[in-house]
Design a protein around this nucleic acid. Structure first.
Lengths: 218, 218
DNA sequence: CGCAGGTTTGAGCACCCTCAACGAATGTGG
DNA sequence: CCACATTCGTTGAGGGTGCTCAAACCTGCG
């Protein structure tokens, strides 16, 4: 029930913010082909053959890589309206899974890929810039700064509607921010105690002192 | 003199490895327009208007962002044959500077951008995958693993010719790997003492125990 | 109500950063 | 050509942030 509410919030937000991604013709032409996936469902796995792009119609997705010893780095979360699945190789280098109940529509990339390149390039560049921004966070910011930046990013992507609905667990947040779950939890507790945020439930955060949070994120 | 040798090594390597990037027609058509830049020269700065792509003909380039307090994260080094300058906005979000004496050719992106999209998309995706790989390094690997991964990456991009010529300072390596110069230096010293690498000079590294280094990098 | 999974909190420790001094390499002016 | 200055790199000592390990606490759910 809580998840349904979250999904609706994401959808409302995406209508405002992700118009450009939604305008890719091949996706709009076939709204009937939306796949409904339960939480924690694999969308694709490393080593699988690839040749599709994916659009989140509602819900949320994590894309990640693994080290041989099991350490995981989530390279991106994708919320409603966002497109993912870009890869260079013929084989996936990443894993993609749903976080919650999620609707996914797919775009087959066959030989028509060249025709669509002018539409896809801006999307790929958006992913690139977002990833580069995240590099700065992982390379040069401490735990509190990472959490602050993460909350601000999630807030913005949900249209700055308060409270923020977090579709992911603490483990996912940790593996995205290059921290442990304990450190994530401690950082959130500090923000809560200092009155910067409220946490009405485990997965919802309300930003109280926006400017303080922004100055923390750098 | 040492730099000339390094540049030649990069060129030889690129002839093998970067054929796809070199094949962008607009670059090949105008070899006369190569700009020769001295070390530590700005190519573009954050806030400047953008609308070009750049190709490294020889030498090396760093692309980076800054936090307000001066912390720097280098998002990528670009060696001979590689193309950089992709951005979504009309204004640069990054800085780009030469590391050493470098030749740069430019490609103006006007309205012809759509026509070239099918050529540019693979390059953008290559950057994206490389950046995502680097996320894993910054998020989940320790200092020794980062140095190992960095050396292997540099070695591969120079065609596995030994020794590796490093065109950047320890500061640049540190700001790329999310470490301090002291930690970079210590990690290199440990690799040297354990016989995994040789360092005939400060900026050249020879990999002696490749497998050991690979197992370190994960 | 009791269980299981996720989250929080605490104590101790390891890795990396900070600060400092020393050494090496390069460039400059005498 | 040498003396010097300057920058860069290395090495050491000490401290802090975040990780590891462990236990307690929620919270949802059967």
């Amino acid at each position: 029930m809580a998840q349904v509410h979250a999904s609706q919030a994401f959808q409302a937000a995406s209508a405002l913010r992700h118009a450009s991604e939604a305008s890719v013709t091949a996706f709009c032409g076939s709204p009937a082909s939306v796949q409904f996936l339960p939480p924690e469902t694999e969308i694709f796995a490393q080593g699988e053959c690839c040749g599709k792009l994916y659009r989140v119609e509602f819900g949320a997705v994590r894309v990640y890589r693994l080290l041989s010893d099991g350490r995981r780095q989530i390279s991106a979360f994708h919320l409603t309206g966002e497109i993912f699945g870009f890869e260079t190789d013929t084989v996936h280098q990443f894993f993609a899974e749903t976080l919650c109940s999620t609707g996914i529509s797919t775009l087959r990339l066959t030989s028509a890929r060249n025709d669509m390149a002018s539409e896809l390039l801006p999307l790929a560049l958006k992913s690139l810039v977002r990833t580069q921004q995240h590099l700065l966070v992982l390379g040069r910011q401490n735990a509190l700064e990472r959490i602050a930046a993460f909350l601000l990013d999630m807030s913005e992507r949900q249209g700055d509607l308060q409270p923020i609905e977090l579709p992911m667990s603490r483990i996912d947040m940790a593996d995205y921010l290059g921290l442990t779950i304990e450190t994530v939890s401690r950082a959130l507790s500090r923000l809560k105690k200092s009155g910067v945020i409220l946490m009405p439930s485990l997965r919802s955060v309300e930003i109280v002192k926006l400017q303080t949070l922004q100055s923390m994120a750098g």
